[in-house]
Design a protein around this nucleic acid. Structure first.
Lengths: 207, 207
DNA sequence: AAAAAGAGAATGATCATTCACTCTTTGCGC
DNA sequence: GCGCAAAGAGTGAATGATCATTCTCTTTTT
């Protein structure tokens, strides 16, 4: 099931208007799927519930996606894009601690669209089993690390920076760890969080 | 299903010999279940495959556990104990980086018994859905943080340590992050890992 | 009217759990 | 020690529910 050759759900090239409909419907399905996946997990969520959430019939979903697995992959790619966007918004050191603190709570339980910590974790676990997911995640991770590394380089332009690679690694671990903590203690004391980040981040970005 | 009142699978008090058998069998089932859960995930693993792995009939499992969910909870408690043991073995700073580096690879794919990063992640994700799991994990997390905090206090005995709480938090994030990274890049360059840890850990434990 | 979009019941597979049954161990009067 | 009944351990097929996917039919658009 996972090793079949890639095959698009909708192949025929159609007029612009139809194209837009296809995009819209796919979007609607993915949005519903994300909600269901956050609530029940990738495997426990049923196609029927996704269909109900999207307010369409189960059969219709298969006009836009070939299988549930294809939807899962699409959701994962979405999550990765969200994650990268979150990282890409980093600009200077002072903001980082504050931004991570703010970000911590407001995307916890799936109330907001976008990144879901629970999905990121499930995705990582699933990567150890599904080679497709593993490939997607691995490719993403290496570019992300490069992003962080070059951001660190940019920060310390001019000064000699010894170990941006290992610092990028630590930073990546820290961000992942914050995602885990977000699922476990969604209502953590913000003061502690802010203090902790303000204590560690300068050490990683400055000297 | 998850809110039913606690009820032990085997209530009758029996002779010591029978007790031992019950323990042995439960152990056998849990060991098989862990293998299956690591391979397929909590929900995708079937009772049939667990039974096959444990070399017993599916029906027999229900003599020792009331439901699959009960097995999942037992596995999670096991993983938490493993995690705590891992943390409890910390003693001095120098060993920590080395120990984390060593630990990184050798419990990855479930070849070794004990802690499985994939399960820890799946467990955290599941905690956002199942209140029983959430409770178990939350209780565990707070004691773990205390453990780390008091370890930091012990390390810096005598010296004035300003913020052991926030440092314990960062350390916990870092450890969680390493677990995530373990699932995503099981074969990471050990040199990088060691360098990174040796750079960050002294900053967290010393001053 | 032809084509595309949609609905929703039918299909076949899978799965957790149970049940009726067999095999094994155990306690016990002799 | 010895046979024997009863309890415990174990089996694996049956059950009923659920689920992904498909198929046939209806509605809408072009």
């Amino acid at each position: 099931m996972q090793q079949t050759t890639e095959q698009e759900a909708i192949t025929r090239p159609v007029s612009g208007k139809a194209q837009i409909r296809v995009q819209t419907q796919r979007e609607r399905i993915l949005s519903a799927a994300q909600k269901c996946f956050i609530e029940d997990g990738f495997h426990a969520a049923s196609m029927a519930s996704i269909a109900a959430t999207a307010a369409m019939s189960p059969g219709l979903i298969y006009r836009y996606f070939n299988s549930k697995n294809e939807i899962i992959i699409a959701i994962i790619e979405r999550q990765l894009i969200c994650l990268r966007t979150e990282i890409a918004m980093l600009d200077d050191t002072v903001n980082l601690a504050e931004r991570l603190t703010t970000r911590y709570g407001n995307c916890g339980t799936g109330l907001t669209p976008g990144l879901s910590p629970a999905l990121v974790l499930e995705m990582s676990a699933e990567a150890t089993r599904d080679p497709d997911i593993a490939a997607a995640v691995a490719a993403f991770d290496s570019t992300l690390r490069t992003d962080i590394s070059s951001w660190l380089d940019r920060l310390n332009r001019g000064k000699i920076t010894t170990n941006t690679d290992s610092r990028a690694f630590i930073l990546q671990c820290l961000i992942d760890g914050l995602k885990v903590r977000q699922t476990r203690e969604p209502h953590i004391d913000r003061g502690l969080l802010r203090t902790a980040l303000n204590e560690i981040l300068p050490l990683l970005t400055r000297p």
